[in-house]
Design a protein around this nucleic acid. Structure first.
Lengths: 199, 199
DNA sequence: CCTACCGATCGGTAGG
DNA sequence: CCTACCGATCGGTAGG
């Protein structure tokens, strides 16, 4: 344990996440990636078997992070508005803490081969289902408005938490918790002023 | 006017939008594109000068559509909540009516050469500014909540209207107007039930 | 992990 | 708009 360096394979995945997110999967060559790690192109294949393996692993790791963050919430007994707030926080935290792989996840999953592609599609459905269940629970409880369209409400929430990958800047003045609290306040309470002041 | 076919150059741009959005810019070869149009790879260069020219034109056309939709709203005198509703409708309509080029716009602009890249970055700032002004106006008028953080509110609205490119399906049961009305209702009125019913 | 290389494919051009 | 081609670069491999 005196060696503080990450295993070479993890370094490769980190570099790949960064380069794929900046330039895109197809525009990043294996020689670009090797150069970023200070080695020759062919040397990468001592650690990995193919370029697509890297993409698959990056996307899988991102999926797993979302899963771990959200699905532990499923069982918890909590009013739905509070649960929605917590889900948004966890979701945004995953995006914010993994900006590179989240960007790869949102942009490059279409380039996966059919099996991996289908897995991602299926996974996205489970995330949709998670939010729809949560909102349905809220409507049934009476904490959320009775006239909500469940599907559209889930899209709206997912828009807010996913789109963060385009504008969030780690290390800035906003922590993931701040973003989530503000978004949840606005979504739950609405943007319109309480008094319908008409001059 | 007896010829109903589009000019060849427009056909090329349409095919390019579709292929770039499905497979990505770098994963689409000029031979793929030519094949989609029933011609040989080299023949494309009778109509265009380079692959990047196609990307630039697709991105520029998309920007122009957003501009035309939104900036005509700027001058209109209208309560800010209503103006926000109308802006969301127009924004979503541009996305919905141009799913391919909107997808290319959101995913592939990073692959532009420095000058075109900088132009897109600058353009995005003007869209941000448009929404921030609109929200500021609403706060000053009293139609929107006084405690809103302008920047975060603009991000939330932009999330909702932009993320539609990932899930909207033209020809489905939801027209752009429906999406915009539902999103605006939820955003303005909030998701929480009016009566704080606590059993 | 490097050197040297493979066949395939890339964007683009010349000449017709 | 086609044929035939250019140099460059791609992902990946063999042998050390």
């Amino acid at each position: 344990m005196t060696d503080t360096a990450k295993p070479r394979r993890e370094q490769i995945l980190d570099s790949a996440s960064r380069l794929f997110s900046e330039r895109g999967y197809h525009a990043t060559s294996m020689r670009d990636l090797a150069g970023d790690l200070g080695m020759q192109g062919g040397s990468l294949y001592a650690h990995i078997s193919s370029k697509e393996e890297l993409l698959i692993e990056i996307v899988n790791q991102a999926s797993r992070q979302f899963d771990e963050a959200l699905f532990t919430l499923r069982a918890e007994a909590m009013p739905a508005d509070q649960k929605l707030r917590e889900a948004m926080y966890r979701h945004i935290r995953v995006v914010a803490d993994n900006m590179d792989s989240a960007t790869v996840f949102f942009h490059e999953w279409k380039h996966l081969s059919p099996e991996a592609y289908a897995r991602v599609t299926g996974w996205r459905d489970t995330i949709d289902a998670f939010y729809r269940e949560l909102i349905t629970q809220g409507v049934q409880e009476g904490t959320l408005r009775a006239d909500l369209d469940i599907k559209m409400t889930a899209y709206l929430v997912l828009s807010a938490v996913n789109w963060a990958y385009t504008w969030y800047r780690p290390g800035g003045s906003l922590a993931p918790r701040d973003v989530a609290e503000q978004f949840a306040d606005m979504l739950l309470g609405g943007l319109r002023a309480p008094t319908g002041a008409q001059p």
